[in-house]
C-alpha cells in the first residue's frame, strides 16, 4: 500500500509540470499588463521600462517561464507587485487561513451528513426521510453568501453573541488555535459548510439506501449479526462512493470562497486571489494558483489511496 502511494506520488511529477505550464500560460495570456496597473497613467516611459526590466517582463515568455520555474523550485515565489512583500508569505498566510476554515467546514459538514444521510436511508417513517431530504435541498439551494449575511445580522448585530468579521480578536494576521479564534470561526464555518452538507447528505442517503437493498445485508441478518455490525458493513460499502464526493467538496472549499471570505473579511485564498486579479499582481496570482493546484493534486491522491484501501475491487494497477 505504501509502495502504491509512493508510485502514485511519482506519477504526479509530470502532472505538476504540466500544471505549472498551464498556470503560467493562463496568467500571461490574459489581457492587461501588471506594470501599467501599479504605475500612474502619466508615468514616464523610462520608469515603466525600468520596472519591466526589474520584474523580468521584457524577456521572451519561455525565458520568463523557466526563470519562474527555477526560482519557484528553489522556494522563492518572487515579490508581490501590489505589496512588495514576498509572494510566499502572502500566499502561505492566506492559504493557511483558508485551510483552517475549510477543515472546520469539512468536519462539520461531513460528520453531520453521514449521520443525517444514514438516518434518512434507514428511516422507515417518511417524515424523517422528508426532513433530511429538505435539509439537504436547502443546503445546496440557499445562496451561502446570503446565509452568511443573515447569520451576521442575527448572531452578531441583533444578539451580539458572535463576532461578525475577522480572523481573531486583535485583528492580527495569523490564526491561532485558541477559544477566541474559534469564536471567530463559528459563523464562517456554518456558512461555508452548507453546500457540502447538502451535497454529502444526499450522497450518503442514496448510497446507503442502495446498499441496504443488497442481498448481502439480508445474508448478514440471516447469520444473526446485530444492527451495529450490519451498519459497519453498510458504511464500509458506502465509503468509496462517499469519499469520492467528499474529495470534490473538500477541493471546492480549499479553493476558498471569495464571497464568504469577503462577507466575513476572512483573509484567505479567495480574498487574496480576488485582490491579485484586480491589481494584476502576476507573481501572487501565479504563486497562489500553483499552490492551490498542488493541493488539489495531493487531495485527489489522498482520496484515491484511501479508496483503494477501503475497496478491494479497485485494482492497484
Amino acid at each position: 500500500m505504501l509502495l502504491y502511494a509512493l508510485r502514485r506520488l511519482l506519477y504526479l511529477v509530470p502532472v505538476a509540470f504540466g500544471v505549472s505550464l498551464l498556470v503560467f500560460a493562463l496568467v500571461h495570456l490574459a489581457p492587461g499588463d501588471a506594470i501599467s496597473a501599479i504605475v500612474p497613467p502619466d508615468a514616464p516611459q523610462e520608469v515603466v521600462d525600468k520596472l519591466r526590466t526589474y520584474y523580468g517582463f521584457d524577456k521572451p515568455l519561455p525565458v520568463q517561464y523557466f526563470r519562474w520555474m527555477l526560482v519557484t523550485l528553489g522556494g522563492d515565489f518572487g515579490t508581490s507587485i501590489g505589496t512588495g512583500r514576498p509572494v510566499f508569505e502572502e500566499v502561505g498566510g492566506a492559504f493557511l487561513n483558508t485551510i483552517v476554515l475549510a477543515i472546520a467546514a469539512c468536519i462539520v459538514a461531513f460528520s453531520l451528513a453521514v449521520v443525517l444521510g444514514t438516518a434518512a436511508a434507514y428511516a422507515r417513517s417518511r417524515a424523517v426521510d422528508r426532513i433530511v431530504t429538505s435539509i439537504a435541498l436547502i443546503g445546496v439551494s440557499v445562496p451561502h453568501f446570503w446565509l452568511a449575511i443573515v447569520l451576521v445580522i442575527v448572531f452578531s448585530v441583533e444578539l451580539g453573541w458572535l463576532p461578525p468579521m475577522g480572523l481573531g480578536p486583535e485583528n492580527v494576521a495569523g490564526w491561532r488555535l485558541d477559544l477566541d479564534h474559534l469564536r471567530y470561526m463559528i459563523l464562517p464555518t456554518v456558512a461555508l459548510s452548507m453546500i457540502p452538507l447538502g451535497v454529502m447528505t444526499r450522497t450518503v442517503r442514496s448510497t446507503v439506501k442502495e446498499i441496504l437493498n443488497m442481498e448481502f445485508v439480508t445474508a448478514l441478518q440471516a447469520k444473526g449479526m446485530n444492527d451495529g455490525r450490519i451498519l459497519l458493513h453498510v458504511l464500509k460499502n458506502a465509503a468509496p462512493t462517499c469519499l469520492a464526493v467528499m474529495g470534490l467538496q473538500a477541493g471546492n472549499l480549499i479553493g476558498g470562497s471569495i464571497l464568504i471570505e469577503t462577507v466575513f473579511s476572512w483573509p484567505g485564498t479567495g480574498f487574496l486571489l480576488n485582490s491579485a486579479i484586480f491589481r494584476r499582481d502576476l507573481p501572487v496570482l501565479q504563486g497562489a494558483t500553483l499552490v492551490l493546484a498542488f493541493f488539489f493534486m495531493m487531495l485527489n491522491l489522498t482520496v484515491d489511496v484511501i479508496q483503494t484501501m477501503v475497496d478491494p475491487r479497485i485494482k492497484r494497477g
Partner: peptide, 20 residues
C-alpha cells in the same frame, strides 16, 4: 439465525459482502 438455522443463497456473488 446462523446458529440453529442457516441459509445458503442463490447468488453467492451478491450474498457475500464484497469489501470483506
Amino acid at each position: 439465525r446462523g446458529r440453529r438455522v442457516s441459509m445458503i443463497f442463490q447468488e453467492p456473488a451478491t450474498a457475500f459482502d464484497p469489501v470483506f
